[in-house]
């Protein structure tokens, strides 16, 4: 089971947007980015050679990843200027040892170039720096790979009293992913708990709460299992699936249990109750499931791939929910002797 908030993977592999993106990624630095924002309380922190060197090291390491196309920061300016000022000798393509040198290069840059460029990578009093890392993929797994490398530099930077934060389109996607995952798990657990409590209150029996939750829990478990099995990632679209499934699944359970209770009180006969319930409620549920599944299957004809997976998954979940209600929950209900206790 994995999460992916890639925007592009929402599209067909041969769609224009995917092909264009692939072209740009192949020939240029990359279409999505992570920005590492370095920040210190001290003025001129970003032009200290130790900090510059660490930035440089971090860029070199992260650029070794295949998915990283390019990276760009203040240290690129410094290295380039150092080389140019030494007759383009490549041995000077390094960060100089003294802060004076760095400050003087930057002054020279300001005097002869357009200082506006500089303010894209560093702030006015050299307290903050912005390292741009261009990625050739907006896939969450890939971005995490880059973040993993960047994280190794958090401690060394903090030793130099420099704090590290992230921004950028790629990182935004990653945050999004985390929100989906935690949000998904939280809302799932919460809704199950609420279902149990509500059912228990409605039927004034704690056991019913747990029995009624059976189809929902089973549906969620099987649904996530299948997604894992077929390598379908959890995304903004597919994340909706389990919520929809719970919403409709609980419907069946309530319907079924309510019928069962009515017949149980009427007939006081367990096997008659079970037969009648299955006859009325079971059939209604089957029709309902059939219609809803067909409704969602229409989405299979969508040109937008996420809608197709949504359709397939919801239909599948409906089916599981229906089966779980009329088989497992049904059997548990039967075995539990609920509503017949006093009669025994």
């Amino acid at each position: 089971m994995w999460i992916n908030s890639s925007f592009l993977e929402n599209f067909e592999r041969d769609s224009d947007i995917v092909l264009t993106d692939a072209f740009v990624n192949q020939h240029f630095g990359g279409t999505s980015s992570i920005n590492v924002i370095l920040e210190s309380e001290h003025k001129d922190a970003m032009i200290r050679p130790e900090v510059e060197k660490l930035i440089d090291e971090m860029q070199t390491e992260v650029e070794s990843l295949e998915l990283v196309g390019n990276s760009f920061s203040i240290s690129d300016y410094i290295r380039r200027m150092n080389q140019v000022m030494h007759a383009d000798d490549p041995t000077f393509d390094v960060i100089p040892e003294s802060q004076e040198m760095i400050a003087q290069y930057l002054l020279l840059y300001e005097m002869s170039g357009d200082p506006e460029n500089l303010w894209k990578v560093v702030d006015y009093d050299y307290r903050k720096a912005n390292v741009t890392i261009q990625l050739k993929s907006d896939n969450s797994k890939d971005i995490n790979q880059a973040i993993e490398i960047l994280e190794k530099y958090r401690a060394p930077f903090s030793e130099l009293q420099v704090e590290m934060n992230y921004a950028g389109s790629g990182y935004k996607a990653l945050v999004f992913t985390d929100l989906i995952l935690t949000g998904q798990i939280k809302s799932l657990l919460l809704s199950i708990v609420i279902i149990i409590i509500l059912l228990a209150l409605m039927f004034r029996k704690v056991n019913i709460g747990f029995i009624g939750a059976i189809p929902v829990v089973l549906t969620a478990a099987i649904s996530f299992g299948v997604m894992g099995l077929f390598n379908i990632s959890l995304s903004t679209t597919t994340a909706l699936v389990s919520s929809i499934a719970i919403g409709i699944g609980i419907d069946y359970a309530v319907h079924f249990i309510e019928r069962y209770k009515i017949y149980a009180l009427q007939t006081r006969d367990k096997s008659l109750t079970i037969r009648e319930t299955m006859h009325h409620s079971g059939r209604a549920i089957a029709f309902n499931a059939f219609v809803v599944i067909m409704g969602f299957l229409v989405l299979l004809f969508s040109v937008f791939p996420p809608n197709r997976s949504l359709g397939a998954l919801v239909s599948f979940n409906m089916f599981i929910s229906f089966i779980a209600t009329v088989t497992i929950m049904y059997l548990v209900l039967y075995k539990s002797n609920i509503f017949f206790k006093n009669k025994k």
Binding site: M85, P96, S98, E100, M101, Q104, Y105, L108, M111, S112
Partner: peptide, 14 residues
Amino acid sequence: WIYLPALKRVKRIS
């Protein structure tokens, strides 16, 4: 021209 003392060199700038 600019002279950078850290570099100990005078450079012409355009």
